[in-house]
Design a protein around this nucleic acid. Structure first.
Lengths: 199, 199
DNA sequence: TACATTTGCTTAACGCTGTTAAATAATTTA
DNA sequence: TAAATTATTTAACAGCGTTAAGCAAATGTA
């Protein structure tokens, strides 16, 4: 019955091939160019075969999104573990978040883009909550002397996220902003928020 | 020759009808539901007629974008003129920006969404630069004692924009965030940046 | 080995999209 | 009234996501 295993392995491989092909197409030609027929072409099959592995195109995007959150979580976790002080951890994590956004630009777009990902992403995809959990731990540590309520922690989290995500969005559509200014905004904003937390 | 005028007026009216219909469809059914045939249906014509008024679908989106910037500029200008102190002007303008984003959610999406609007929007559409000019005037006034360089003003501008745009983006895809927290983030972020400018 | 069954994959099709060219209807001009 | 121009529609193309039907190869069974 080892042939069964081989076939299962091949199926798993094709599934991965589909995801890889999709991401490669998007990286080479952009999101609008991604089509089922083009993916099929890339893996040397015809389009309907893809539906044996994914319910529809959206399911492929969802799986790419999930993979994106896994990478982002790994990166932010690694950044966090390099520091002991929560303020250093916060800075490192948001810089990791920033790096991820541009290292995996297409993944970031499908993860946080205005389009497809509907409102309840966190509910149907637990991986999407991990990064916020990492950050909130550090915020809570940093705010511990102030005995913060859950809402206060949440407020600080969204302040961080807003400025970083906003800066990323702006940089993605307007590539003409100088890197110096961008870095200045990012660093001073992060340290400014941290300072405001410490009071 | 008054009939010529009448015909020109009718043509102008149809052009407006196309834009109005497009925006109405988007407001009622969302951006993905917008199609040329649906617009044509709404103005009681067939699809090819639209190409007598707009080069293609993208040109319609561009015109909606332009209209959006006109409204945004008007709103921010009005907000600015209600105050004398530059710090008050800045706060009022960014709150106006915020209000616009949710009052004209669909316009904001096409103006700043990740999708269509390519990199050089400001170059081909001067209206897109107006809001930033308004804000920068106030920033320069506020920073006048510090003799700021152009880059420093730019940095402050992007800090403002990042946090506001980021917060808007997050609120648009995650509608489950409480309004209290959102308002708290917005207000404290804006006043925080203003305070950091004043030093 | 021969037949039946399941599996893998393709071709064909549906309804949709943006867009263009040709055909037709309506209006204006001569 | 006939010709020319304009307004509008119908038909078509290529592409999209998706589904159903058909075929071909591999597998299970006798």
């Amino acid at each position: 019955m080892a042939s069964k295993d081989r076939i299962l392995r091949l199926k798993e491989e094709t599934r991965t091939n589909i995801l890889d092909a999709a991401l490669r197409i998007v990286k080479e030609e952009g999101w609008p160019a991604l089509s089922m027929r083009k993916i099929a072409d890339a893996i040397e099959y015809t389009a309907p075969i893809i539906y044996e592995y994914f319910a529809n195109k959206d399911a492929i995007l969802m799986e790419l999104t999930r993979g994106g959150f896994l990478i982002l979580t790994r990166d932010m976790k690694a950044a966090k573990e390099e520091h002991k002080l929560p303020e250093k951890q916060l800075e490192a994590m948001w810089l990791a978040y920033w790096s991820f956004a541009f290292a995996e630009k297409e993944l970031y777009q499908v993860m946080f883009g205005v389009d497809a990902n509907c409102c309840e992403l966190c509910e149907i995809m637990p991986e999407a909550e991990e990064p916020s959990l990492l950050v909130n731990e550090a915020i809570i540590q940093l705010m511990a002397p102030h005995q913060p309520t859950e809402d206060e922690v949440c407020t600080k989290y969204y302040t961080f996220w807003s400025v970083v995500h906003g800066l990323i969005s702006i940089n993605m559509v307007r590539r003409n902003i100088s890197d110096d200014i961008t870095n200045e905004v990012l660093k001073t904003a992060i340290s400014g928020i941290i300072r405001s937390i410490k009071g």
